[in-house]
């Protein structure tokens, strides 16, 4: 019990995730900067930002609902950290796992978006309200392709547990290339989930200032930003665990290094994607997700079902 609590709090739980999330943010920013031929921030920039924000005053708007307003950042942070416990990172086994944990992870990763929506909606500012609406609209667009993309490997592996899935794919490594469409779909949907260009519509700064976060400041904003950073790491870990599960369970040190490399690779792809696109309009985003992304995810399922029928 004590070991588990230690694991939850320090490693690979809360503390490790926080530090890794900051490093991931730095990597994302420096890569983005290098793609744009800029120098980029120094290594401690995310830490400095976080400390600065935590030291600042929290301002709750007068007409906002203080309870919901203050709860939402913590909820977002809590849910993403909880989600990380079910993802096998450098071992075949996650911290916790049971049959059906994929569904739990996907739903836990939805909670941040819902909390952005509620936080924005209850801060009662014009920009935040519009940002909140966009948050929710966008959720409906990317969630289905993301879920379908993660579902298809599960069908192939015939299990609803992520840990068992990685075991299965480690034994059938040659099946991995067949999931390539799903990988692409999941990556793009992850961009939408993390609200990064071209899907940063809910917080499009030139249109609606900062979207749902317009009224947030100080500690609450710091928690939100931390939640997004951790969400990026957890999302990248999820994609790595589902689509790039090779090398797990060999050796803890090797596995750990591989895990870091995989996450960095996913972050690299995310940064690359966000540096080459313009932000879409919300209705263009819906069009894209339903016209191209969802059918692609369906195609992946069809591929998986056929594979399963023919080969296994």
């Amino acid at each position: 019990m004590a070991v588990q609590i230690l694991e939850i709090i320090i490693f690979p739980g809360f503390l490790f995730l926080t530090v890794f999330a900051m490093i991931a943010e730095y990597l994302d920013r420096i890569l983005y900067a290098r793609f744009q031929n800029r120098k980029g921030p120094p290594w401690f920039q995310p830490f400095a930002d976080f400390i600065k924000l935590v030291a600042k005053e929290d301002i709750v708007p007068e007409c906002a609902n203080p309870f919901v307003f203050k709860l939402m950042p913590i909820l977002a942070l809590a849910s993403v950290i909880t989600a990380s416990f079910y993802i096998p990172m450098w071992d075949n086994k996650a911290l916790f796992s049971f049959e059906g944990d994929i569904i739990v992870i996907v739903y836990l990763l939805t909670i941040p978006t819902i909390s952005f929506f509620l936080g924005g909606w209850y801060s009662r500012s014009l920009y935040a309200t519009i940002g909140a609406m966009r948050n929710l609209t966008q959720l409906f667009a990317y969630e289905v392709p993301l879920f379908l993309a993660i579902l298809s490997p599960a069908i192939l592996a015939h299990t609803w547990s992520l840990s068992e899935m990685t075991v299965f794919f480690n034994n059938h490594l040659w099946l991995l290339p067949f999931n390539i469409i799903g990988f692409a779909v999941a990556l793009i949907a992850l961009l939408g989930k993390l609200e990064k260009v071209p899907f940063d519509i809910p917080e499009a700064e030139t249109e609606i200032v900062a979207g749902s976060f317009t009224e947030y400041s100080g500690r609450l904003l710091a928690f939100f930003r931390m939640a997004i950073d951790i969400e990026m790491v957890v999302g990248a870990s999820l994609v790595a665990a589902v689509f790039l599960p090779f090398g797990l369970g060999l050796n803890p040190v090797l596995g750990f290094i591989l895990y870091i490399l995989k996450v960095v690779f996913v972050i690299f792809l995310l940064a690359l994607l966000r540096s080459v696109f313009a932000r879409l309009r919300i209705e263009q985003m819906m069009d894209f997700c339903w016209k191209y992304l969802a059918p692609a995810a369906f195609l992946q399922i069809v591929v998986c079902v056929i594979l399963k029928g023919v080969l296994l």
């Binding site: 793609f35 744009q36 031929n37 800029r38 120098k39 980029g40 690359l272 540096s275």
Partner: peptide, 22 residues
């Protein structure tokens, strides 16, 4: 075609940044 800039962007990873540490 989407992602027209990918090659240009990747080319810049190794280049010295245009900005300076003023």
């Amino acid at each position: 075609r989407p992602g027209k800039m990918i090659s240009e962007v990747l080319k810049h990873v190794g280049k010295t940044p245009a900005t300076t540490n003023y």
